[in-house]
Each structure stands twice: as structure tokens, then as C-alpha cells.
Design a binder for these strands. Structure first.
Length: 312
DNA sequence: GTCCAGGAAGAAA
DNA sequence: TTTCTTCATGGA
């Protein structure tokens, strides 16, 4: 019988822990998980208690080890749900691969990135705060700011000499001093946006549960763009990563770059061309965005594939 | 020095 | 309605 703090989580259809882990690694320094050889570690909160998870890939699924304590049965169920949500493990992605396979520029993806899932941000506040932080600045700078914020305001688990951080609670950001946030190299506007966002969560003007009750993506997006600092890009980014709406963060610099590299558009302002492409992917728009982002982090031996898709 | 990074808001035209 | 300007830093 398995010890109570370990369990296995199977995925529906193609799933590669290695691809997901690689996406979380890339070249960036994300303070909310640790990447180890062949493994990931992340702290999560369930019912007010924090758990440190150690994840490894196994046979189309995840081997999970809870390092810091033994979860009760009900908590274990919620941990499973959290991980299935984070890695989108319950989705059958074969229809997406079928759509990719009919496009000359994209058909290499199901092979090259086989089993990559749209790695999400299950917490809506975190998803929105992160997308505000990342507006208009390069990703490595955005991760630096996030690290300062998290290490100052987030709780953490200490385990064998390492610290594993959680994203700050809403109330910590709502009560933060603007000057202190600004000292983290956030712009004055983003400080305003973040505190305003936190206050909107504090008053329950916005919550994940409320958004989930809305009938469609447009209603959810319109609710989010009412918040100061949340435009179309930010709303769609958060909805794609948190509620997994099939939507596109139009205007995204990385997305545009990837579309140009693949010759899917010729002009970065060609919104119509982008909408035409994405409309073919109906429920899989978010996945296409995610795979295009993935394509931006490419090792030198992969580069030739872009120039000659027929090689795949 | 200039331009651009996984943008948004307010002003100006 | 569309376009311009500002914001923050850092790397190319």
C-alpha cells in the first residue's frame, strides 16, 4: 500500500511532464516553484493549510509526494484537483493536435512539443496581478519584480534549508504601502492597479466563483476590464490561464513575434489575420497561444524546423 | 543614444 | 474614433 503522502495522478490522452516542466523552467526565474532535475516543487494552500508538493513524471501522469505533512483524505482530493487544474490534465488534447496537423506552419508542434499542457494559474488574483506586473516590460524584469513582491508579502514553507513561497494573499497587497511597492520597481500606475485589484477582491466585487457563473467569455472579459489597469490583453491572459477560456491576448508582443516567425501574419497590426487564424481553433485558441509562446524558447538545433516545416 | 519587451489610460487630434 | 504620450527598467 502507498504511503499516505504519495499518490499518482493520471492524465487524459497525451501528457508530458517533461514538456510542462521545461515550460516552467525556460530561462526565467519564477519564485513560485522550484525546478529540479526531472522534478518540480511547489507550495500550495488547501483549506488554509500549506503543502509542499514534489512532482515527477510517470507513465502519462504525475507522481506526487507531499513533503511537509500528511494530507487528510479530503485535502488529498483537493490537491489532486489543484494539480489537474494546474496542468490541465483532464483534457483530451487530440482534437487540438488534429487542428495543428492541417496547418503547414504548425504541424510540427504535436511532435516537437508532444504532451505539453496549457500550464495554468489556478488562483485568479495571482493570474491578474501577474499579468498587470508583466504589462509592457520584458519577462525577466517582470519575474524580478514578482520575486520582490512575493518574498516581501508572501508566506512560505521552509523545508530542508529551502524556502518555498506562496503568492501574497489579497489583503497583504490591499494593505501594502504604495511607496514600498514602488520601491520594487513597479511603476506608479501599476502600484495603483495592483492595490485597486486587491481591494476589488477584498470587497468581493470580483472572484473566480462569480466569473464562473457568467454565461460566456465576453461577459467574463467585460467584468474584468471594468477594473482599472485591466485591458483586453490582461483580461484574456488571466481568463486563458485561470478559467481556461478559449481566448487570445491580442496585442501580446510574444504572440505577435511567434506569428511573424511562422509567417502566419506579415504585419504585427494585422488583427483580422490573427482572428481568422484563431477562429479555426475555436475551443483551442488558448492552447494555440500557449504553443506559440512555447515556440519562442527554442534551442539552436530546433531553429531549422521553423525555416523548413516539411522536415517534420 | 534608440528601440522594444507576453499594455493601459488619458489626452490630443 | 483613432493616434499619441507616458510610464519603469534593462538588454540588444
Amino acid at each position: 500500500m502507498m504511503p499516505s503522502n504519495t499518490f499518482f495522478l493520471p492524465a487524459v490522452s497525451h501528457f508530458s511532464f517533461g514538456e510542462c516542466r521545461w515550460f516552467l523552467y525556460r530561462d526565467y526565474d519564477d519564485c513560485l516553484h522550484k525546478v529540479l532535475p526531472g522534478a518540480l516543487r511547489k507550495a500550495v494552500v488547501i483549506d488554509g493549510e500549506s503543502f509542499l508538493l514534489h512532482l515527477e513524471g510517470r507513465d502519462n501522469g504525475l507522481a506526487v509526494n507531499v513533503l511537509n505533512r500528511s494530507p487528510r483524505e479530503g485535502q488529498k482530493i483537493k490537491l489532486r484537483q489543484y494539480l489537474q487544474d494546474w496542468f490541465d490534465m483532464e483534457r483530451d488534447i487530440r482534437p487540438f493536435y488534429k487542428l495543428l496537423s492541417v496547418d503547414d506552419a504548425l504541424r510540427y508542434m504535436p511532435v516537437r512539443y508532444h504532451g505539453l499542457r496549457l500550464v495554468g494559474i489556478p488562483d485568479l488574483f495571482e493570474a491578474l496581478a501577474w499579468s498587470i506586473i508583466g504589462q509592457q516590460i520584458n519577462l525577466s524584469f517582470a519575474y524580478k519584480i514578482k520575486r520582490r513582491l512575493v518574498e516581501r508579502f508572501g508566506e512560505s514553507i521552509s523545508y530542508r534549508g529551502d524556502q518555498y513561497f506562496l503568492f501574497p494573499r489579497v489583503e497583504k497587497i490591499a494593505d501594502a504601502s504604495p511607496a514600498e511597492l514602488k520601491a520594487m520597481l513597479l511603476s506608479v500606475r501599476k502600484v495603483d492597479y495592483l492595490i485597486g485589484l486587491a481591494k476589488a477582491f477584498m470587497t468581493s466585487a470580483i472572484s473566480k466563483a462569480k466569473l464562473q457563473l457568467l454565461p460566456n467569455h465576453e461577459a467574463r472579459r467585460n467584468t474584468l476590464t471594468m477594473i482599472k489597469g485591466v485591458g483586453e490583453w490582461t483580461a484574456n491572459y488571466a481568463l486563458m490561464k485561470c478559467l481556461r477560456d478559449p481566448c487570445v491576448p491580442y496585442g501580446d508582443a510574444g504572440l505577435i513575434k511567434a506569428l511573424l516567425v511562422h509567417n502566419l501574419i506579415n504585419d504585427k497590426r494585422d488583427r483580422e489575420g490573427m482572428e481568422r487564424l484563431f477562429s479555426k481553433f475555436s475551443e483551442w485558441k488558448g492552447y494555440l497561444v500557449f504553443y506559440l509562446w512555447r515556440s519562442l524558447s527554442v534551442s539552436s538545433d530546433e531553429l531549422s524546423v521553423f525555416k523548413d516545416p516539411s522536415r517534420c
